[in-house]
């Protein structure tokens, strides 16, 4: 808890305590942990002297600011048509089988979360996915298995 208090203060010192500092602060929190806890949002509200409802209202608007528990590595596989046309479904099944989770779920060790997302801008190298901020493109079941194995070692 104390750790979080300090982190919020640190982020506020860096980005300021104005309303337009809110999103950079929340994004800073997301970098530490892949989701926003209720406690963290209340702390941010106090730090910026705005209502916690405002903080939650803003955070919950943005798809990438998760308020549900997420794993250390969040996989977002593109669900737009161009990726579907290039074999996204087989790649998705491979991820599900490898991690033993379905879309929307998190592994029990809290290491991986699997989500779908809209176009991430790699249609010419479809299918594509993000793991946290890193894009992976031209995926095949074999390629995605190798990528996941690397992350499992980390």
């Amino acid at each position: 808890m104390l750790e979080q208090v300090n982190l919020v203060k640190e982020l506020a010192d860096k980005h300021g305590r104005r309303r337009d500092s809110l999103i950079p602060i929340l994004q800073g929190l997301m970098e530490e942990k892949n989701y926003l806890t209720d406690e963290a949002m209340v702390l941010v509200a106090k730090e910026l002297d705005i209502s916690a409802a405002d903080v939650y209202g803003t955070a919950s608007f943005y798809t990438f600011m998760d308020t549900d528990v997420r794993g250390k590595y969040v996989i977002r596989i593109c669900k737009t048509i161009s990726c579907s046309m290039k074999g996204k479904i087989e790649v998705l099944h491979t991820i599900e089988e490898t991690l033993k989770i379905k879309v929307g779920e998190t592994t029990s060790d809290k290491k991986f979360s699997l989500l779908e997302t809209n176009c991430i801008g790699w249609c010419h190298k479809a299918p594509a996915m993000l793991i946290n901020d890193t894009p992976y493109t031209e995926l095949t079941p074999q390629k995605v298995t190798e990528i996941l194995q690397e992350y499992m070692k980390m």
């Binding site: 309303r19 999103i23 950079p24």
Partner: peptide, 26 residues
């Protein structure tokens, strides 16, 4: 430099302003 957080609507100019201002991108 400001970053979005996965909301398509923020490409709409006034929603983008709202987002930079620290609000919901409406």
């Amino acid at each position: 430099l400001r970053l979005g957080s996965g909301a398509y609507i923020c490409g709409e100019e006034s929603a983008l302003f709202e987002s930079i201002e620290g609000k919901r991108g409406e």
